[in-house]
Computed example of a mutant assay.
Amino acid sequence: MSEQIRILLVDDQQLIRVGFRLVLESEPDLVVVGEAADGASAVAEATRLRPDVILMDVRMPGVDGIAATERIVTATPTAKVIVLTTFDLDEYAFGAIQAGASGFLLKDAQRQELTGAVRAVHGGDAILAPRVTRRILDHVASRLPHTPAGSDPAAHLTERELEVFEAMARGLTNAEIAQQLFLGESTVKTHVGRVLAKVGARDRVHAVILAHRWGHATLD
């Protein structure tokens, strides 16, 4: 059996943690190594347990998920954070993304979505459900400067890389980008890696934020 992905669950509602644990541990390659009911405990447990992936609630007593994510990403950079959100918490979720989370997931996600998200983030990808991406960016669009100071991070991209960058900004998966641009998925993955390096993005989510800040994507 392949090495298990170690997961930390963070949510102030015990029933939600129990539900996620049951789903995750039904998979042979996933194991829940710890739980936390607030942000402060999450930071402590992340430091102690060094999990691979953290499922992070946003609204919690004391230290919230945004502050906790920022502290964890700084102190334990190998841990990938997936923010748990609902449509009415978009602004909070976006704050957590800016703090360094690797994606966001709806709390009512289906079993396959949850397990797939954990595996994708652990593998270095990011979780960007298009409908949630659009909702969050719509909500904060007025705060995203389209011409910030400094050089455009996409200035050094090739024409093809720019196409991939813009597709990423719309929340498309590698498979969807491949279909749209008539490329193989392995080729798209290579382009994505080059785009991240050239624009200075820490991950796919950060690349989306940069794309919208610099006007390389529209919210039509």
Results as ranks from 00 to 15, higher is better:
150 G>H: 08
198 K>I: 11
164 V>H: 11
194 R>A: 09
65 G>S: 07
177 I>Q: 06
151 S>R: 14
73 V>Y: 02
117 A>P: 01
46 A>M: 10
32 V>A: 06
124 G>W: 04
141 A>Q: 12
81 V>D: 09
149 A>V: 12
107 K>Y: 00
7 I>G: 07
163 E>P: 01
27 E>R: 11
52 D>I: 04
210 L>P: 09
14 Q>C: 04
36 A>S: 08
35 E>L: 10
206 H>P: 11
77 P>T: 09
206 H>G: 06
164 V>Q: 03
159 E>P: 08
21 R>V: 08
161 E>Q: 15
82 I>W: 03
208 V>N: 10
169 A>M: 12
67 A>Y: 08
75 A>Q: 15
178 A>T: 07
127 I>P: 08
45 E>I: 09
91 E>R: 13
9 L>M: 07
185 E>T: 15
109 A>F: 08
201 A>V: 12
69 T>C: 11
175 A>E: 15
34 G>W: 03
41 S>E: 15
96 A>M: 14
29 D>F: 01
152 D>Y: 02
134 R>W: 01
28 P>Q: 07
88 D>E: 15
18 V>G: 00
148 P>I: 05
46 A>I: 07
195 V>N: 04
2 S>F: 05
55 L>I: 03
79 A>Q: 05
177 I>W: 05
90 D>N: 01
172 L>F: 12
108 D>K: 14
140 V>F: 15
204 R>M: 12
205 V>K: 04
177 I>M: 12
54 I>M: 10
123 G>C: 07
131 R>C: 11
218 T>V: 10
24 L>W: 08
36 A>K: 09
198 K>H: 03
171 G>W: 06
44 A>T: 08
69 T>N: 07
191 H>D: 14
38 D>V: 14
24 L>N: 02
194 R>I: 01
53 V>Y: 03
39 G>Q: 08
215 G>M: 08
195 V>K: 05
192 V>G: 01
183 L>Q: 13
215 G>Y: 10
210 L>G: 03
28 P>C: 01
184 G>W: 07
42 A>N: 03
219 L>Y: 02
107 K>C: 00
38 D>E: 15
137 L>H: 04
112 Q>W: 03
152 D>P: 03
